[in-house]
Design a protein around this nucleic acid. Structure first.
Lengths: 211, 211, 211, 211
DNA sequence: TATGAATGAGGCTTCATTCAT
DNA sequence: GATGAATGAAGCCTCATTCAT
């Protein structure tokens, strides 16, 4: 009985009874998470007092700690979630493409699109990519979603569609180029110009990659 | 007053007394700056108490505040210095090159070399590139050293040596690619392999840029 | 309201519904009290959050406050109960003895036996004997069970069986000696050695008391 | 140089320069210690916020933590000091006595006198004798001052001046009797009556101990 | 110039208690 | 009766900064 009571504590409630209950139960939790996302990206981890998060989220200070035992646990949860969401968005039907190069380009396109549409999450990911506030396990979990990309690069090299250079380097530069591209494209508010920038950027990157 | 303190930096003190005094006086200031560089990159701005900086630098807490009115002024000074040093290193005889593309490649090579040889400074620059701890004026001053690069890109396009795409985009992606390249190359400790990585990376970038 | 809750304790609920209900209703109350006893002795009053008590007792946080309006009321109830139980145990057929000295010795023996057999309660009594967490009225109520001892000491002096010294002093020293004796005897796990210790201790005390 | 600076930090200052400096430097430290002593005995450890200690001591909150890294370190320091002071007071020329019994009685007398004259310290010692707020090492250090008493008891038994019972028990009961005696004697404000109580109490205890 | 004791606002977290279900 | 999410005051501790020496 104790165990049961304990487990219930921190789970998003398994929808016992009506959906309304479950939804309402985690409403505060979600408010806290989304507020934290905004504030962390705007002001950094140490620059954002938990008191500010709870105030902006419209809950009491204690409520934040009811859902997240520590500030670290809050940012960790956020990190895992966003990494996972990004990975999922990135993979949207990339497997319909034939070559590894085409697959990568599709993935890149997806990533950029998602980054532009979710600027706060994008900034969050960049900001905390190597941060020590995020636990090692969360970093590893986040990383795991992206490991297949390295394989894809290797496949491309084997296929001959991708230039034969150090796959780690390629991956590293591709990733950082995407960051730069997203930053620049996001600054451009006109949709068609932005679309053009994205394509130019992808050309730039994949020109460099072609065998 | 801030300005005064700062100016002292590069003027080895007019005369007044002996040179020894001046040298000795600046010694503590330099110890503080170099300690702060290490600690800020390792632990971030808020993660580094001024008391830790002064302890590690081997001076009293009051001494730090004698040289730098606030913690912000300390990081600002560091930022200006490092940006300026990086810019200078980057430009090492780039003008001997003929085309804009070649100049850029030379600059890129210099930048990467400096980044690998000064990892703390490199990390510091990346970490605080968009940070709000650094004053706007310091950011602008830092930026100013690099504006000529945009012009160089434009020149290259005009010349026909560089692909005709949005110069801002090109600049952005080039810069971020360099970051990725430095990160990867720094991880490689063998000098000749590292050299090869750097060249492969530059090829990657400049293949994408070529007209 | 406090009083009402308290009275419920010893009155197994008049009628109203079945006995089962009453029994079940009190079950949680008892679980809370016994859990609190253990935790308070192990960790002190402030060291024991009510949330821990309710968790270990296997009830919800709200349930504790249904039975005890405040944390103070909980410890107060515990205190009254234990004091009363101790007093009762102490008095087990002491009146069969003839002299005041013999009565006191019997009482002492009972007290020590009870203390050894109920270590948590014994510790609780010592810990909160002068504590401000327990209300003054509870302290007075607790004290009242033991006042007759002072009279017994006085009787003994009058009878000539007890040495003529300040009764308050005698009482005080007797009580504290018992504490010391219980502590030492409890540490001895072998029953017969323990019995010997108890008797040696009683001899020590009553040698000093004899006229 | 760093090391030097570090060591200086928490030491009571080795009287470098004039005595005035040293005295003044630790004035706040002493105020904090004596205030904490009073408050801890009156309200317990958890019942005494550090903010109250600093307020009553007339210093800022930060000052307390400048001298004592944690609340635990504060109580630990207090504990060590008081235990050591008590031990010293207790031993005042006890060696002029001949038999172990006489030595113990002299020690007892000293202890009681000190306890009456330093009621706060006496209460503190009793209250935190087995407390978990005080570190194990401090407990051990405190205990070490009193170990010779057990030997003295054993000597007395060997000599034949002390009754042959479990030395641990004797020690335990003696110690707790002293507590009771001090408590009772302290309540008596008239000096000559108090003196009489003390002697009666000692008679009580040492009557019980005599062979 | 250099020191380091002193300050106090502010940060993270705990916990007794309430209340709608 | 029972639940557990929600509250917010209060606790411990940190740290940028000041100032007398």
């Amino acid at each position: 009985m104790e165990k049961t009571a304990e487990k219930r504590l921190k789970q998003p409630k398994p929808a016992k009874g009506s959906d309304d209950e479950a939804k309402k139960a985690s409403e505060n939790r979600e408010k806290i998470l989304s507020t934290a996302l905004t504030l962390f990206t705007e002001r950094g981890f140490f620059g954002t007092p938990t008191s500010l998060i709870s105030k902006e989220a419209g809950v009491a200070t204690g409520t934040l700690f009811f859902y997240f035992a520590t500030k670290e646990e809050l940012i960790d949860t956020l990190y895992r979630r966003i990494k996972s969401e990004a990975a999922q968005a990135m993979c949207r039907n990339f497997n319909t493409e034939k070559t590894a190069l085409a697959k990568l380009r599709r993935i890149g396109y997806n990533a950029i699109e998602w980054g532009i549409e979710n600027p706060a999450k994008q900034k969050f990911m960049e900001q905390f990519a190597h941060s020590s506030f995020v636990s090692t396990t969360a970093h590893e979990e986040g990383m795991s979603h992206f490991l297949f990309l390295q394989d894809l690069v290797r496949d491309g090299i084997r296929e001959g569609s991708i230039r034969d250079i150090d796959p780690g380097l390629l991956f590293c530069m591709m990733a950082s180029s995407f960051s730069g591209l997203i930053a620049r494209a996001y600054a451009e508010k006109d949709p068609s110009l932005r679309e053009r920038l994205v394509n130019e950027g992808l050309d730039f990157i994949f020109n460099g990659m072609k065998a």
